[in-house]
């Protein structure tokens, strides 16, 4: 069935079966492959995207459920060539190695800026625990998130 999604501010019309997840629709049909598939069962956070500004998991949403909703993927984060401060901070603090969990980490971290997460590193660690990083780049991730939070970015 045809469904029109608003992805990164643009309408994208896809012809999908109801069983197609947002994750597979993005990766296999829209060819927006920044959003990663790590577990396909809501257990790793690699597919984190924003729906109406809130972080969610694209692997557990059917594409057809999202008509009229605003979807943001990592591709929609940077303003042209200018990186979002969170993206720049991840590079600066080496908040990744292989980079595969990174889109989900960054989308989670950006959403976190608008959540009632406490100020401490421990609070950030808890709030970011839904994003597994098997390379173990957690210290760099926390440093990046804290740098952006302390700079007051949104």
């Amino acid at each position: 069935m045809p469904v029109t999604l608003r992805i990164n501010g643009r309408p994208v019309t896809l012809d999908v079966e109801p069983r197609v997840t947002l994750l597979d629709a993005l990766r296999e049909q829209a060819l927006l492959t920044a959003t990663k598939k790590g577990c396909d069962h809501g257990q790793c956070g690699a597919c984190t995207i924003h729906v109406d500004g809130r972080r969610q998991l694209a692997c557990l949403i059917l594409a057809v459920m999202l008509a009229e909703r605003e979807i943001t993927t990592l591709e929609g984060l940077a303003a042209g060539d200018e990186l979002h401060p969170m993206q720049a901070a991840f590079i600066e603090h080496d908040g990744f190695q292989c980079g595969y969990c990174t889109p989900g980490q960054i989308m989670s971290a950006v959403a976190l800026l608008n959540e009632p997460c406490g100020d401490s590193d421990d609070d950030v660690k808890e709030c970011m625990s839904g994003n597994l990083c098997r390379c173990g780049a957690y210290p760099g991730i926390v440093a990046a998130v804290q740098q952006v939070r302390r700079a007051g970015a949104r």
């Binding site: 990766r27 927006l32 492959t33 920044a34 959003t35 990663k36 598939k37 993927t73 990592l74 591709e75 984060l77 940077a78 990186l83 993206q87 720049a88 991840f90 590079i91 600066e92 080496d94 990744f96 980079g99 595969y100 990174t102 889109p103 960054i106």
Partner: peptide, 19 residues
């Protein structure tokens, strides 16, 4: 030095096999 492939990875431009 920051990773030379860092920008590709934080923007999603790095394409992994299935992509």
């Amino acid at each position: 030095m920051s990773r030379v492939d860092g920008r590709l990875k934080v923007t999603g431009a790095a394409r992994y096999t299935a992509e």
